[in-house]
Computed example of a mutant assay.
Amino acid sequence: MDGKFKKIVIDNSDTIVHMWLDEVDSLKDGNYTSSISDELFENTNREFVNVIFSSIQKQGASISLEEFSEKLINLGWPLSYITDGLQVFRRVTVDYILSQSDQVDSTYISNVLKSVDMWVEPIIRQLVNEYSGSWEHIVSLQRVALQELSAPLIPVMDSITVMPLIGTIDTERAKLIMENLLEGVIRHNAEVVLIDITGVPVVDTMVAHHIIQAAEAVRLIGSTCILVGIRPEIAQTIVNLGIDLGKFPTKSSLRKGFTAALEITNRKVVDLDGKEESIGRMLDSLNGE
């Protein structure tokens, strides 16, 4: 930034800050920050302007660009808050510098605009890059977490595991189900796997195809797959679509599927001091009943 203009900005920083805060505050009603408390909005604006002025004074901001952008993401504020705020700051600063001089010729105005742009533009680029990088990192972590939760395999007893499925099953998720299923069967040495589709809203040809593939893969490594949670409307859909699920057992509920799994593994539930009922409650909790 031109030394002369820089001195004007630094010497009159309080005035420029108040002008900027007034303009930004006037934009609060009716936009993306309208639901934010006045105290949080004011504090964040002051941190924002501190970051801006620290860049021109070459002194390290009290809150770094990376920390500030990450804070905005955690607050749920959009990127437009940064770009809008800096555009307002650019305009306010240019207007103030021009107001301090009697020169109004085009050359002087051009020099002011160029000088302010040389200050503000790098801040815009860096803040946008930091914001985007932090956002992508957070989204990546969330995606990993969702993948881990989208196809869990739960060992409920020796040789018996349950995979409860909730939500829509697409091709990418079906691949993850297959991988987790095969790895889990081997890791837990499972003889029987219960795939619970109680929480799957729609079972169409594609979903059924993926489930059949998963069950067939389990069979090829020496285990049995039981499909449970088949509701009446799902059963009707399967019949109407002509989908053949006859290659592996199906049950209407997790409780019935677990009983079948015990029989396959040469075990049974014995009513001994209420233990049978406790097992039933455990299965109901897994099934969300």
Rank of each mutant, 00 (worst) to 15 (best):
M1T: 11
M1H: 03
D2P: 03
K4C: 04
F5M: 06
D11T: 06
N12L: 05
S13T: 08
T15V: 15
I16G: 13
V17A: 12
M19N: 15
D22R: 13
E23N: 10
D25Q: 12
L27T: 13
R46A: 09
I52T: 13
S55G: 12
Q57T: 15
G60E: 14
G60C: 05
G60Q: 14
A61M: 09
E70A: 15
K71Y: 13
N74W: 03
N74C: 00
W77E: 08
P78C: 05
D84W: 01
G85R: 11
G85H: 12
L86H: 09
R90Y: 15
V92Q: 11
S99T: 01
V104R: 15
Y108G: 05
I109L: 04
V112C: 04
L113A: 12
L113G: 02
I123W: 10
R125P: 00
Q126I: 09
V128M: 08
S132C: 06
G133R: 11
W135Y: 11
I138G: 02
L141Y: 04
Q142I: 05
E148I: 02
S150K: 04
V156C: 07
M157G: 02
M163R: 09
R173H: 00
N180P: 03
I186N: 02
E191P: 00
V193K: 06
I197Q: 05
M206V: 07
H210L: 08
A217W: 10
V218W: 05
S223E: 10
T237C: 02
D244Q: 02
K251L: 04
S252M: 15
K256G: 05
A261I: 03
I264P: 02
L272C: 07
D284E: 11
